[in-house]
Amino acid sequence: MAFWDYANPTRFLRLVQVVLPWLTGLCVLAFAAGFYMSFFVAPEDYQQGQTVRIMYIHVPAAWLSMMCYSIMAVSSLGTLVWKHPLADVSAKAAAPIGAAFTFMSLVTGSLWGKPMWGTYWVWDARLTSVLVLLIMYLGLMTLWRTMDDPIKAGKAAAILTLVGALNLPIIKFSVDWWNTLHQPASVMRMDGPTIHPDILWPLLVMAIAFTLLFFVLHLMAMRNEILRRRVRTLRLRAATSAHPRSATATAQPAE
């Protein structure tokens, strides 16, 4: 099973070394194409004018924020069920990237909302759910930071991630329900744009570019995390051996 072949961190690092330049190149190309298409190919919206161009970063960022959480949930399963040694590395490395994409989708959404709705923020069901997602990302990052032992922290975070994954649909549903109860009449709802190929293609290219960006960053962050754990192990060893050069001579019973 190919998945298990890369359980060895050293082999994984070698794979990253090979794959990363190609992935980065593809990512840059995809972004170049995506930007060109979203500014020069895509038409302006008859209702929203040029502001519709915000959609080409807003929507992919929102997709990525959810995809990143799915990846973290799968990684958490990997930590708890399959005990794959790289699973919690993957989950930990994904969290800040996911938080950043969520933040981007919130910021672009609110900058889009100001000219369209006349306010930066409404407690719309979709926006609110994304805000809850951001809080979950930040909470997970904090959980990882407060624990010194990466293995313990990884397990705790995996449990929280999975509970969150089960909970997110419930949150989405209840926020929808809460919102339809309260929806103030003054706020104009945005109609989903009729998907015309001229809009769809730039959107898809941008989505691919964002996905590639995610994987580039994710691999780099995973590599850093593996190095960080290596440093930690070596430091622990450096502390226990009184004189690293002649460690066998002075080996003491630890604690």
């Binding site: 622990l236 450096a238 502390a239 604690e255």
Partner: peptide, 18 residues
């Protein structure tokens, strides 16, 4: 006291005796 080599390490890595 023979723990000069640990000066730059976080104190969390020390054993009880250290």
């Amino acid at each position: 006291l023979g723990i000069g080599h640990t000066a730059q390490l976080p104190a969390a890595f020390l054993s009880a005796g250290q």
